[in-house]
């Protein structure tokens, strides 16, 4: 539609509304239409809209006219927290509001999205089995099923895995598939290398879809491992959705007290770096094997 057509339509509408179209009015109408069209015509700009998730909230301080802004910023550097972000009336400012929603969305994505199994097989080089959870909804509502392997999974593990390994490693999506994608490729080889440097033998590593921490107990019994270690995505938060934990125990059994487990949590790029955490976990596993104990029975 060009300007002429538009003008005709408007004139027609004005006529129907019984507004007389004398020449003066029509002139001003024309210019009004033209200026309106001029403004709405598409302008292509180069560049990108800034990615609000790139902002580091440790260095963000948005209070207007602060008395001790520098001091506040120094305190903020110590821990990520949504403090000192100003306000607009009684509400958040636009940027923190959007950042908060972005963080919340990332947390939801991490939790609700199924992991890309191609990544598991191709990038991590692992085969996978599933717990008795058929889908995410069941996984989230039935924690007990997340600790049990399907009969098929048990069969697969019996066929494919080395029996009675010194250390059995398992990776699982848990509550954050993003955590596995972000860290497993650095963490897993670091643990394996650390164990190799102590000449400790590692079984056949695999992936468990819809797994809870407790699934390691069944795996430990099934394969007869001395130490079983599961790398599992943590419940995502608003600071990071990519945090991974390693739970490990000496001769884990189904129904054992939780106190027999050890954990190294907060493995992500802004927490403990995955490669260094892996080296640390390998050494903790070595101590576990030396002392034949884990959890509160073991003093590191």
């Amino acid at each position: 539609m060009d300007a002429k057509d538009l003008r005709q339509i408007i004139e027609q509408v004005l006529c129907e509304m019984n507004i007389t179209g004398d020449s003066g009015q029509t002139g001003s109408l024309t210019s009004a239409v033209q200026s309106a069209l001029g403004k709405s015509s598409t302008v292509v700009e180069e560049g990108f809209i800034p990615d609000i998730t790139e902002n580091d909230i440790k260095t963000q301080y948005l209070v207007d006219n602060p008395r001790y802004g520098d001091a506040f910023l120094e305190i903020k550097m110590r821990a990520p927290a949504r403090l000192g972000i100003g306000k607009a009336g009684a509400r958040y400012k636009t940027l923190p509001q959007l950042q908060f929603r972005a963080a919340h969305s990332a947390a939801q994505d991490a939790c609700f999205h199924d992991i890309d199994l191609d990544y598991v097989t191709d990038k991590l080089g692992l085969f996978y089995v599933q717990t008795e959870c058929e889908n995410k909804d069941i996984y989230l509502t039935r924690p007990d099923l997340g600790r049990k392997l399907t009969a098929e999974a048990q069969k697969t593990l019996r066929e494919k895995c080395k029996k009675n390994p010194t250390v059995q490693l398992v990776v699982s999506d848990g509550l954050s598939s993003s955590a596995v994608i972000a860290n497993a490729a650095d963490l897993l080889p670091a643990i394996v290398q650390g164990l190799a440097s102590f000449k400790i033998d590692v079984g056949t590593t695999f992936f468990v879809k819809y797994g809870r921490v407790g699934v390691m107990d069944e795996i430990s019994e099934l394969l007869g491992a001395d130490v079983t270690c599961i790398l599992v995505g943590e419940r995502p938060g608003l600071i990071t959705a990519e945090s991974l934990s390693a739970y490990f125990a000496y001769k884990a059994t189904v129904g054992m007290p939780e106190a027999r487990r050890n954990v190294v949590s907060n493995i992500h790029k802004a927490g403990t770096s995955p490669a260094e955490a892996g080296a640390h976990i390998a050494e903790m596993i070595k101590v576990m094997l030396d002392k034949k104990a884990s959890g509160t029975d073991l003093k590191f």
Partner: peptide, 13 residues
Amino acid sequence: NDIGKALGHAIRV
């Protein structure tokens, strides 16, 4: 940089 243990393991292996 905090990579001492991982680097040490890597060199050893």
